[in-house]
Structure formats: C-alpha cells, structure tokens
Write a protein that binds this DNA or RNA. Sequence first.
DNA 1: GCCAACGTTGGC
DNA 2: GCCAACGTTGGC
Length: 151
Amino acid sequence: MAYWLLKSEPSVYSIDDLKRDKSTFWEGVRNYQARNNLRAMKKGDRALFYHSNAAPAAVVGIAEISKAAYPDPTQFLRSNKYFDGKSSKENPRWSVVDIRYIGRLKSPVPLEALKKAGALSKMVLVNNSRLSVQPVSESEWKIVLEMGDFR
DNA sequence: GCCAACGTTGGC
DNA sequence: GCCAACGTTGGC
C-alpha cells in the first residue's frame, strides 16, 4: 500500500466536509506533478488530509483512495472553473481519484511540528510546500499518525 | 494582505 | 531551448 498527502483549503473543502459527504472525487488538480501522483494512486492507498491556508496549516485527518484515477469531468464543462479547452475526451489532460473519509486525527499536526520533527526532514511537504498531491513514505506516515494520536 | 517561491506561458 | 513575464499558491 502507498501513502499520500492531499491538500485542501478548509474554506473550500475541509475534513468536516469530507466527513459529511463520506466520499468525494478529488477535482481540480491542474498541476502535472500533482496529476502524476493522482495517476499513481491505487485503490486502497491512504492519504493524509492537510488543511492549507489555515490557521494553523495542519494535517487533520485520514482518507482512503476508493477509486483509482479516471478523467476529471470538470475539465470538459465549459461553465466550470476547472474547464480546460486544451483537453479532449480522447486524450484527457487531468485526472481525479475518489476518496473516502476514514477519520480525524485526535490532535491535528501543524506544519510547524512537522518541520521540527527531525525524522520528517525529507517529507515533501516540508521541502516543496506548493505541491498539492504528494507521496508520503511509510515511516513518515507512521510518525505523523503517532504525532496526531490517530487511533 | 503581503510576498517569496514556484509553475506556466509565450516571444524570440 | 532559453528566459522574462506573469499567475498562483500558501505561510505568515
């Protein structure tokens, strides 16, 4: 099983929104590196749910990849803000995955705490804060869940 | 709201 | 293919 980190601004879509919805499709990724990470996901993989542009920015919960990558429907909707006129149905540019709510961390782990943890110095989030879909190593995964008192 | 860091675009 | 200009992200 692989591990990932998904970022979302809580004012747009928060962990509580996911809890309410139970599952959703991860729309709107328009960055190639992030898209490639989406396409590498397999059903059953797990992801940290991270709140960006939040006070504090923090890992707040856990989700499961419930369906592997498929074309992002929003890229074809002219009225949608994620519409991409350069994409085609024959050769879609952008992908989504489905995710399912697993749970909240008992205590959210702020970015600052991740930066302070020596064992996480190679974590993508610590080194490239702009990538919105990131891989997480198994050891990083375990450490973050422990820091968040996830049970 | 500011601004640094990063990604993308497009002229050449 | 280079790189300046521009737009976006995201921490603070």
